[in-house]
Write a protein that binds this DNA or RNA. Structure first.
Lengths: 149, 149
DNA sequence: CAATTCCCGATAGGATCAATAGACAATAAG
DNA sequence: CTTATTGTCTATTGATCCTATCGGGAATTG
């Protein structure tokens, strides 16, 4: 499941992607344009900042700016930052592997093998799509995307 | 995330897949062989029965049996029965679509488009792999599987 | 009838999630 | 320098779900 947090984060970052890179956008503005709960979004932006994905400026005319180009930030980056590993089960995760308590022979565990495949498929999609691929300009070129994917 | 429930269900069903189809297997036996919590597994087997995936027999020498051939039950069936839709977000689900409260224009929502792709990829994997593909016999033929997948 | 085994309801602790409130800190503008 | 603005941070809340267990009831076999 994708959390609300991750969904809101993605929406906010996509909004930022369509703005000039050097003009800070306030949380209130992000919340209104994205139809997102303001206070909750504050937390989220803060967390994105801690992950180095956005910069912030305080005081009047302050706000948030992307810390990298929209063509450098993937959906996978954002989802992992907010929700943790893509793998449906820890024993199938690359970035946060953890053994199942109940597992006896991991090498042949069908569940793990299958969930690893699911993880790989999700990664293939999310780690190869950048914010720039999906901003309103980008979405127009979507039919091309779908063919190549 | 795959719940413990779904994981246990899959493990139990895989055990049943390797037994003669007409001999009931008791919950205790499934729990021991699979290293699963017995009481919890009782609930799970019951739920699997309600979903028509297993039959049960009461009384002495009772237990559970698969309601279909291992070559007829997919991982997707089991995961959906236990955890609900595969889609990471309801608005991207085929089987249990629900609109996001905050969404304004669904057609162009990047989050939805991406999550739909993830859903499709997971479905492609889980709905095309059967219990029989992953029972201990099946796992030997795995390298073939991987090539074709 | 007695033993066995599934069936079922209740429940409990814990974790996580979604969201808000309210005070504090930095910055810009006048 | 003062004031308004806006990000920063901590705490807290309610809700929901997850995992798991307990204990007894109902069916079936021998």
């Amino acid at each position: 499941m994708l959390s609300q947090k991750a969904k809101y984060a993605l929406k906010a970052l996509l909004i930022l992607s369509e703005r000039p890179a050097d003009v800070p956008v306030q949380v209130v503005e992000l919340a209104e344009e994205g139809n997102l709960p303001r206070k909750f979004l504050e937390l989220i932006m803060l967390e994105l900042k801690k992950h180095g994905m956005v910069h912030s400026q305080r005081g009047k005319h302050g706000g948030y700016m992307l810390a990298a180009l929209p063509s450098e930030i993937t959906f996978g980056d954002v989802v992992r930052a907010m929700d943790g590993p893509l793998a449906p089960i820890p024993c199938a995760s690359l970035t946060a592997y953890r053994k199942c308590a109940d597992c006896t022979n991991e090498k042949t565990c069908a569940v793990r093998i299958m969930m690893r495949r699911v993880r790989d498929a999700a990664s293939e999609i999310l780690d190869n799509t950048y914010l720039s691929n999906m901003s309103s300009d980008g979405v127009e070129a979507l039919s091309d995307q779908l063919v190549s994917a």
